[in-house]
């Protein structure tokens, strides 16, 4: 699709410069603790491959390094069962898992399934609430990395009108 190509091109050209100055998370902490007012360097790089992947498995693999995850009933996804407008779908993910380091959200049938990845400090509760776009009825998948292992759960959301502009 020419539109997708255009989109990728836009994303890639503006990202490339930024990716050059990628720093590790240790460097992030250093940059912040050294008192920088606006820690531009503190931003993690943007995982272009994962965010533009059209396939769920590819997206999961490129963002988490592995597409293996264990289904877990310790994660809860709170969303409406039916949404009229896919442009605004409230999603709340919480978990009773310990040592949660990241929460990653996917919308299975979206053009690019990866929605967002949240890296949490060890002081943070395993909790994230946000609003996402869904192109059509599909599963919302949350993968939580806890103690180095991936745990996942999914919830089906019925979408009446898609929210990705197509």
């Amino acid at each position: 699709m020419p539109l997708n190509k255009q989109f990728n091109k836009d994303v890639c050209s503006s990202r490339r410069l930024f990716l050059k100055s990628t720093l590790s998370s240790t460097a992030i902490t250093l940059a912040v603790s050294s008192g920088l007012l606006f820690p531009m360097q503190a931003f993690a790089s943007w995982n272009e491959v994962a965010f533009t992947a059209k396939n769920l498995q590819t997206a999961i693999k490129s963002v988490l390094g592995s597409d293996l995850s264990q289904a877990s009933n310790k994660i809860s996804i709170k969303t409406p069962d039916v949404v009229e407008n896919g442009a605004i779908v409230p999603v709340t993910v919480s978990s009773t898992l310990k040592e949660v380091s990241t929460i990653t959200l996917f919308s299975e049938q979206n053009n690019a399934p990866l929605v967002a990845q949240f890296e949490l400090d060890k002081d943070c509760n395993a909790y994230i609430s946000t609003r996402i776009k869904m192109s059509q009825t599909s599963n919302v998948i949350a993968i939580i990395t806890a103690s180095g292992k991936n745990y996942s759960t999914r919830k089906k959301v019925k979408v009446t009108i898609g929210g990705c502009g197509d």
Binding site: S25, I28, T29, V32, S33, G35, A42, F43, A44, W46, N47, F51, A87, I88, V89, S107, N110, A112, L114, V115, A116, Q117, F118, E119, L120, D121, D123, C124, N125, Y127, I128, S129, T130, R131, I132, K133, M134, G163, C164
Partner: peptide, 25 residues
């Protein structure tokens, strides 16, 4: 001086984004 939340977003985060998280300490 501690990074509590560090997130990467794609285009599928809704317009006028809302985010909420919790921490102790």
């Amino acid at each position: 001086k501690k990074v509590l939340l560090n997130s990467q977003w794609g285009v599928a985060v809704a317009k006028n984004p809302y985010v909420s998280f919790k921490y102790s300490g």
